[in-house]
């Protein structure tokens, strides 16, 4: 006790800097538990109470394991989980609160200051360390044996080379994967029933009534090597709008069929599926960052962080009345990437 009090005093005796006086530690005031034996006993019982509460929690956990054994229903699992949580919370919280209370009220409350020791070692330690290093240099003979030294340096230098091979396996570069999808001339539009369907459900133009929104995947998607990867690029939303409401770009006059238009469902911001279609306002909203596209104006961005309009899939009707793609998307779908302008998309 006395040695610590000594350090405490030492800590207060700092030099005066910039006119501020170190106020030192505040005067020690005894706590209620220090002066009143009755309060001390009460607190002791309180702390023991918290520990007992913790025990009750632990026992409650064990009891509820048997008492609330779940049957087939979700509700019974929910009930048991809740009882487990209650027990575990009491068990841990009781121990924690009890310990903190103990530390705050019963453990000695005298204020103590401890000085930090200086960061640098003393001269003696420094001399010893230097000696060890010199000894290592002499005994290993690294200065006298340049062959060993140089081969060691070379060995260390080339050791990371295998990493090049390993990292190379992250490739190969995507090639034209970013620029192409499964859509192509004559590929029929199929309904998306979720996941990877085993058979295609083609769509007749007449079945897409005004106000409809149909989620579309390309024909034969399930036969490709990675159907879900292909779906992630080729997903399309098909909508039919009264042709009078569409402001069609003359250059894209024949990209729709009598008001039926198809747009990529992959947001040009970070690639979320844009499919919140409002059939009266013709707004398409992306749920992730609220980018909003105007379907009547070739899906130009009217709000939000997206920078490019959604790519439009040019569609037509084949001889059997089914909707087909005229060709692949004229521009890459999804978020913009560094190489997006490196190639001209072919007009097929």
């Amino acid at each position: 006790m006395t040695s610590k009090q000594h350090t405490a005093e030492h800590g207060t005796q700092l030099e005066q800097v910039n006119g501020f006086t170190n106020p030192g530690l505040p005067e020690h005031t005894p706590r209620l538990t220090d002066i009143s034996p009755a309060a001390e006993r009460t607190t002791e019982r309180q702390i023991a109470g918290w520990f007992i509460l913790s025990m009750i929690g632990t026992i409650w956990f064990i009891v509820s394991y048997f008492l609330f054994a779940p049957d087939e229903t979700m509700a019974s699992i929910q009930l048991q989980n809740m009882m487990f949580g209650l027990g575990a919370t009491l068990a841990l919280f009781g121990i924690g609160v009890g310990l903190v209370l103990w530390g705050k009220t019963l453990v000695s409350g005298t204020e103590v200051a401890e000085d930090r020791h200086p960061i640098e070692g003393n001269e003696e330690d420094q001399a010893v360390a230097l000696e060890i290093l010199n000894q290592a240099k002499d005994e290993s003979g690294i200065a006298r044996r340049p062959l060993l030294r140089n081969t060691l340096i070379a060995a260390v230098a080339i050791a990371p080379l295998p990493a090049i091979l390993v990292f190379r396996d992250l490739g190969p570069l995507p090639g034209d994967k970013m620029f192409t999808t499964l859509w192509g001339p004559g590929v029929r539009l199929c309904q998306d029933p979720g996941g990877v369907p085993r058979e295609d459900r083609f769509i007749r133009a007449e079945d897409v009534t005004i106000g409809s929104a149909v989620h579309v995947i390309p024909e034969g998607m399930h036969e490709s090597e990675h159907p879900l990867d292909e779906k992630a690029k080729a997903a399309v939303l098909l909508m039919r709008i009264d042709p009078k409401e569409l402001n069609t770009d003359p250059a894209k006059e024949d990209w729709g069929v009598d008001g039926i238009v198809a747009y990529s469902k992959i947001c040009t911001h970070v690639g979320c599926p844009v499919a919140l279609y409002e059939h009266q306002t013709h707004h398409l909203l992306c749920p992730c960052h609220q980018s909003t596209f105007d379907v009547t104006n070739h899906c130009e961005v009217i709000f939000g962080p997206a920078k490019r309009p959604l790519p439009q899939l040019p569609i037509a009707v084949d001889s059997e009345g089914y909707l087909v793609a005229q060709r692949d998307f004229p521009e890459p779908v999804g978020p913009t990437f560094w190489e997006i302008n490196t190639r001209e998309t072919s007009e097929q």
């Binding site: 007749r204 079945d207 009534t209 005004i210 409809s212 929104a213 059939h279 009266q280």
Partner: peptide
């Protein structure tokens, strides 16, 4: 019927 702004999901869809 697609009330308000909800798209219509007809029997073909």
């Amino acid at each position: 019927t697609g009330p308000q702004n909800m798209p219509i999901f007809n029997d073909a869809n």
